[in-house]
Computed example of a mutant assay.
Amino acid sequence: MNTARTRLYVDAQYTSPYAMSAFVVLKEKSIDFELIALDLGAREHQAKDYAHLSLTQRVPTLVQGDFALSESSAIIEYLEEAFPQAPVFPQDIKQRARARQIQAWLRSDLMPIRQQRSTEVVFCGQKRPPLTADAAPAVSKLFDAASTLLADGREYLFGEWSIADVDLALMLNRLILNGDDVPPALVQYAQRQWQRPSVQAWLNLSR
């Protein structure tokens, strides 16, 4: 497939965790692409030209020729099937299903953490006040699930790196990088994922 016209639309602040996931997958697969930043505050994602590309008028949106696709989960799964080299999901069908389960969970649950620890904590070095009592159940659920998945001290969720590792590390780093108490084993796991070159490429974007 010709990837010369591949474009990825992301937020201008580079703080979207979903844009980051799509960006990392493109880097992992060594796909040549143009990164285009939209100012969401100025509602550039609602402009007519972009709305014509992005069905949901959100970021990220991937464009290849006359094909445009929004929503990060759909983008990642499309790239995995279209460019099977350098897979970003486990090859075992059950592990692959588990990876998608983890991603869907992290995108749809744990709202108190996402509300009280925005990604500006992760990407911009901001600090937020202590978590409220309402966040405690979400934090406990996150720690319990992550500790269960990584119970044997493994470096990655499924023996080898997958995009689910980035998503889980990002959620943990919402707490870690704010200075909240996180089990040491989970801190080490998150720090390991953060050193991956594709992740560093996103972190090093000028903000």
Rank of each mutant, 00 (worst) to 15 (best):
Y50P: 05
E81A: 14
S30L: 12
R5H: 13
A37Y: 05
D32Y: 00
Q103T: 05
Q64R: 13
K27L: 10
Q85A: 14
Q13R: 12
I93S: 11
P84D: 10
A47L: 10
A51W: 03
I31A: 02
R96Y: 01
P84K: 09
Q91M: 10
V59E: 01
A12P: 00
D92I: 06
A86C: 11
S72W: 09
Q13L: 13
L55F: 12
E81F: 02
Y78F: 15
L8K: 06
R100M: 06
S70Q: 11
G65R: 07
A4E: 15
T61S: 10
A97M: 07
D39Q: 04
K29I: 09
Q103Y: 01
Q101N: 06
S16I: 07
K48Q: 15
I36K: 04
P84T: 09
E71K: 06
W105A: 00
E44I: 04
F67P: 03
E81P: 00
A86H: 15
A19L: 05
T3V: 12
D32C: 03
A22N: 03
A68C: 09
L55Q: 13
D39C: 01
Y14D: 03
Y18E: 04
F33G: 05
F33K: 05
S30T: 12
I93P: 00
T15P: 00
Q46E: 13
R98H: 12
Y78S: 08
Q46A: 07
T56P: 00
T3F: 10
S73A: 15
F67S: 03
L55E: 12
A82L: 11
A47Q: 15
R58C: 11
T3R: 05
I76H: 08
L53F: 05
Q57Y: 09
A37V: 06
Q85V: 08
A68P: 07
P60A: 07
I36C: 04
